[in-house]
Simulated assay, not measured.
Amino acid sequence: MFGLTFEKLLVIGIIAVFLLGPERLPYYAAQFGRFVRSARDMANGARDRLREEMGPEFDEVDWKKLDPRQYDPRRIIREALLEDEEPPAPAVVVKPPRQSAYAQRKQKVVAAEPAPFDSEAT
């Protein structure tokens, strides 16, 4: 739990006893218990709402795969490099035009009528 061992929790408890004193310690322990309970209820509520909104797909998701602690760049690169490559696509043969692009454009310009001209435009 957050890298806290039993010894560290014990030290934190002893420090809390000295700082809070025996009179206030039960009150703050109860407050801490309520906080933990409400945080757990919020997490469960969020999970239930997500399950409601996602529907049956919620159970199909591999949540461990999305855990950021599983991130290992060396493994990701190794898997990407070892994947089977797709076969190359067949080469596309492009036939050259019978005429140059300049000649084709010149024919279109000659065949088209001139653009309209508005003498009153600015």
Rank of each mutant, 00 (worst) to 15 (best):
E120W: 09
A91E: 14
E85P: 00
D72M: 12
P114N: 12
G21H: 06
G13W: 14
P73L: 06
R51A: 08
R51C: 11
M54P: 03
L66V: 02
L19H: 08
Q31P: 06
E23L: 11
P68M: 03
E85M: 00
P22N: 04
Q31R: 14
A89W: 01
P22S: 08
I77E: 14
G3T: 12
E60G: 02
L81F: 06
Y71D: 14
E86K: 05
G13L: 07
G3C: 09
A16F: 01
L66E: 03
F2W: 15
R51Y: 04
L20H: 00
E53F: 12
S119W: 11
F6L: 12
N44S: 05
Q104A: 06
L4A: 02
G55T: 12
K65T: 06
M42F: 05
P116S: 01
F32Y: 13
G33Y: 13
Y28A: 09
L20W: 01
D59P: 00
V61C: 02
R34T: 07
K95G: 11
Y102R: 10
E113L: 03
A103Q: 07
E60H: 04
A91V: 13
L4F: 10
V92I: 15
A43N: 09
P22Q: 07
K108N: 03
L82H: 05
Y102S: 07
D72F: 13
V93W: 09
R51P: 03
E53V: 11
L20S: 01
K95M: 08
D118W: 11
Q107M: 06
I14E: 13
N44A: 12
E85A: 02
Y102T: 13
A16D: 02
E57P: 02
P88T: 00
M42I: 04
A46Q: 08
I77M: 10
V11C: 04
R34G: 09
R24V: 15
A103R: 06
E57H: 07
Q104T: 01
G55L: 11
R105E: 08
S119E: 13
A16Y: 00
Y102V: 13
D59L: 06
R24T: 10
F58P: 01
E79R: 05
M42G: 06
D118A: 06
K64L: 12
E79A: 03
E85D: 02
R74E: 10
L10W: 15
Q70S: 15
F32P: 04
T5Y: 14
I12E: 14
P116V: 00
L4Q: 12
P68Y: 05
Q70N: 14
V109E: 08
T122A: 08
K95N: 13
P90N: 01
